[in-house]
Design a protein around this nucleic acid. Structure first.
Lengths: 225, 225
DNA sequence: GGCATTTAATTTGGATCCAATAAAGCAATA
DNA sequence: TATTGCTTTATTGGATCCAAATTAAATGCC
């Protein structure tokens, strides 16, 4: 909530995400507090937040440890995002796309179209895609009447590998990444089309499939070379 | 984590659930601490947990307030549980029902069958149903390879109206409740059947429909009298 | 009399202190 | 030598203190 507090949570999240603390590592309050240069109090608060987020778990009867994630966990987290974003998309399609939402989505679709149009990818495109992708997904999940779904997605996204922009991993092989983004962009356009036409079931299924793009597509795209 | 800490979270959850603190109420740390007879520290820790759970939200730049939930929020929370439990059911069907899980589910199905068999409901049946229902759902979501889905469901269930056993509301009209539980039991049996047969899509859809039982069924059951 | 600026009070965040509890180490006995 | 019980140590939880920040109030100026 305060700057420092949020920073402690954020910094720990980053450190865990970077693998600075390995899974199974016991995190002592004093040790972490010293490493971060703060007192125990903000660390204790942060630990509770991170426990709720699922990054830490109780280590026996005392203290916390970095949670270990299996490949199955990664897969499930991506699918969880898929069904939740699918739910949001279906709702939006069923209740009808408001004009302003239509306009906003259209804007980011166009941005994506331009990005892909030139037929290849440069380093700086990655951030641009990340931005437009976040906007596209964010608009959809925030345009339904309730924040509950968006909250559930946000909580799931705390798992670093589950977030929507974890599509981009391999910034070395920009050629394969281009194919992936080309498909992702087309997914966006299909979803947008179904939203406009009120095709709830189709929007849901497309969104669910779209979530798998970082998970199931790389092998196929590699084969097709 | 500690007794007292957990108690503070639990007690606050209960107080909020009971409407003891109204939506929009600002919760001051000192005030709550005095009311609960503890110091500010455990209250501060609890606030962070409850914020993550979605029961509290930041009030301006200072403090927390009880979050307000609209009817749309309630509906969405139930649907979120539906899609998540549906995901779990599909996974379980797709990966095949292990013998021990089959046995356990069968046991609780039988319990439900007996409960319904006598054709009416008595007060004490409610707790029994609550128990077997919790077991049935718990087994399914914990039998897939990963805890991520179960965690997401657990977090969603922190919203008091979203939990799976919020089916029972009206313990006065036991007749209508009986009809509801009769249907719920049949849902369970259908889901069990589809799980055993590996019918993933069907299991998923049945589970999603099953989640709506507390939401969409009462009006129809009232009409059919 | 209204608005703005400064001041006071309330509240939260961070640090530290003390107590309770769990883990680890050590010793003694079987 | 192994196991059990006790003592010591480390770590966490709760309370309190102090500082910082935000909100409310009051006073002064236009």
């Amino acid at each position: 909530m305060s700057n420092n507090d949020k920073n402690v949570v954020g910094r720990l999240r980053k450190l865990i995400g970077e693998g600075r603390y390995s899974p199974g590592d016991r995190l002592g309050e004093v040790a972490v507090a010293e490493q971060l240069g703060v007192s125990r109090t903000p660390v204790r608060l942060a630990f509770r937040t991170l426990e709720q987020e699922g990054l830490l778990q109780q280590a026996g009867k005392r203290g916390f440890m970095v949670r270990e994630f299996t490949q199955a966990d990664v897969h499930c987290a991506v699918e969880v995002r898929g069904v939740l974003e699918g739910l949001a998309a279906r709702h939006l399609a069923e209740q009808g796309l408001p004009p302003d939402v239509d306009k906003e989505l259209s804007f980011w679709i166009q941005k994506g179209k331009k990005l892909i149009a030139k037929g290849y990818l440069v380093e700086s495109d990655i951030n641009q895609w990340s931005e437009l992708n976040a906007h596209f997904h964010g608009i959809i999940i925030h345009s339904i009447g309730s924040g509950v779904v968006a909250d559930a997605i946000a909580r799931n996204n705390h798992l670093p590998f589950a977030a929507a922009d974890s599509i981009i991993i391999d910034s070395d092989d920009l050629e394969r990444e281009f194919k992936k983004l080309q498909l992702a962009q087309f997914h966006h356009e299909l979803i947008f089309q179904s939203l406009k036409r009120g095709e709830g079931a189709r929007a849901e299924m497309l969104m669910r499939e779209h979530a798998l793009i970082g998970l199931r597509y790389p092998e196929l795209l590699a084969d097709s070379e």
